[in-house]
């Protein structure tokens, strides 16, 4: 009993599924005290669905919903006249009373393909490399883009609610280890208001990737973020763009309160060759409007 009372005092862990036009509102909301932005649905108790989700994101939203552990609750924030205070109160109330709410899965809890193989763990069988045995794509060796040695290539789709990418963006990436060898945009990010380019929000996104949650929160509140070796931690030359400096320059500009005007090259050119963490730092260093312009679908490119 006492444990549950202690537990109810914890900040409500919220995973934000952000729709078109709602990025600023949600980022500011989740920086409040009493709420905690979960970096994975597994760590969240509340799914916040902000804005009207386009129909093509419904299945992905269902998958995210089902990834939250029980007990869980979904809250929708779709009318702009509902204030952030009111939504925060609703979230905290749901979190305190989560056991009584709980929600069932939206999608059937079955693997898309039967899991079978030869061994006791479903491993083994003929042809361990490549192809799609039992409907599961397997990694296949390919030339390493850095040294020409052979290394496994693994392709996955990330998005549209991946917390380290802009909301709505679906990337199909081919990785070798954690080096991106190919990236194509499957769905562009949702359009966001100009406020999403605000320097404090851009700075906070980079600070989060740099592991500085406290400073990121302070930046969103318009206070001095603090932090040691902040600019220095961004490698020089990373994500260099003609006329907009590199990621470190852009972070310095954001921290100085300047909006960075960036015309980024197409993501399918910008990302390959970078390690995943470098790529996410570069993405965070681009204002959402620049990513939207750089995220052209393959057929349009």
């Amino acid at each position: 009993m006492r444990l549950s009372r202690l537990a109810s005092r914890a900040p409500a862990p919220v995973f934000g599924a952000i729709g078109p036009g709602w990025q600023v509102a949600v980022e500011r909301l989740l920086a409040r005290s009493g709420l905690r932005r979960a970096l994975t649905p597994r760590d969240a108790g509340i799914l916040l669905v902000a804005g009207d989700m386009p129909g093509d994101a419904a299945e992905a939203l269902g998958r995210v919903h089902d990834q939250l552990p029980h007990p869980r609750a979904t809250l929708r924030w779709t009318v702009s006249h509902e204030t952030a205070d009111a939504v925060a109160d609703r979230i905290v109330a749901s979190w305190r009373d989560l056991g009584a709410i709980d929600e069932a899965d939206l999608l059937p809890d079955q693997p898309p393909n039967e899991w079978k193989g030869v061994g006791p763990h479903g491993q083994g069988g003929k042809g361990m490399m490549g192809g799609t045995p039992y409907g599961r794509p397997m990694a296949m060796t390919g030339e390493d883009i850095r040294d020409g040695l052979q290394l496994d290539r693994y392709t996955a789709r990330i998005g549209p609610f991946a917390p380290m990418l802009p909301p709505g963006l679906v990337l199909e990436v081919t990785l070798q280890g954690d080096v991106i060898v190919a990236a194509t945009v499957q769905h562009p990010p949702f359009a966001q208001p100009v406020d999403a380019d605000a320097p404090e929000l851009c700075a906070a996104r980079m600070l989060t990737i740099l592991g500085l949650d406290g400073p990121a929160r302070r930046a969103i509140h318009g206070r001095r973020p603090g932090g040691i070796w902040v600019r220095g931690a961004v490698p020089r030359g990373l994500g260099g763009i003609e006329g907009a400096g590199d990621a470190r320059d852009r972070l310095a500009a954001f921290l100085g309160g300047d909006r960075a005007a960036v015309t980024a090259p197409d993501l399918s050119e910008l990302l390959p060759g970078l390690e995943w963490s470098e790529a996410m730092l570069v993405m965070a260093s681009l204002p959402p409007s620049a990513i939207l312009r750089a995220a052209r679908l393959p057929e349009a490119a």
């Binding site: 970096l39 994975t40 597994r42 760590d43 552990p69 991946a162 917390p163 380290m164 989060t208 990737i209 592991g211 949650d213 070796w229 931690a233 995943w276 963490s277 996410m280 730092l281």
Partner: peptide, 25 residues
């Protein structure tokens, strides 16, 4: 922790813990 937490970093959705919830976490 912090500058040396390369296992559970934010860019990989808390990395080695990304799929863990509840008591395991």
């Amino acid at each position: 922790r912090g500058p040396m937490d390369f296992a559970d970093a934010a860019d990989i959705a808390t990395g080695t813990s990304a799929e863990e919830s509840g008591a395991a976490r």
